[in-house]
Amino acid sequence: MVAAVIGVIRSRNLFVVVMLGGIYSFLMATVMVALDAVDVAMTEAAVGAGMSTVLLLAVLGLVKTREAPLRHSPFIPLLVCFLTGAALIYGTLSLPPFGRQDTPTNQHVAPYYIKNSVKETGSPNIVTAVLASYRGYDTLGETTVIFTGGIGVLILLSTSRRRRLKQSSDEDSST
């Protein structure tokens, strides 16, 4: 995964960048299977690696596919990133260790769902039970966000098409 990210940073060909992004998403999906998040891994493989790669390729059909060389020296961004990384790594020193059951994150709400979700919703898959039943309103909000995003994309692309039609009709009337 780290190799894929470094490839994305170094490559100037945008096709290579987009395909490496897809590979990165697939690797992330396999890591998610290893972390027991099978539902998330499925979504990431379908949506992250599939859909966004296809969408990005569609955009690449419309724009130039080579990146211009960097004009500024990359020193300041590197410094900023290094400082951020150092601060974050300092922050991880007090986080709970990996893979333990007695950490606060695994002690509070999750045991309730694991114990009661079959009784209360009848779904053996706890993730589905929480998503559709306990947090149904959350999922409704999520679909609202997607709806808004879709409308935004449609508005942005339709205004440009209308302008182009208008331009061509203007040219027709002037000639």
Binding site: A37, V40, V47, I114, V127, D138, G149
Partner: peptide, 24 residues
């Protein structure tokens, strides 16, 4: 823990919506 899985499922789908808007 199933709870982060639910949150991240939501986040993935919302993330694609924002990326699509950015591409537009």
């Amino acid at each position: 823990n199933p709870l982060p899985h639910v949150l991240i499922l939501t986040a993935i789908v919302v993330g694609v919506a924002t990326i699509a808007l950015g591409m537009a």
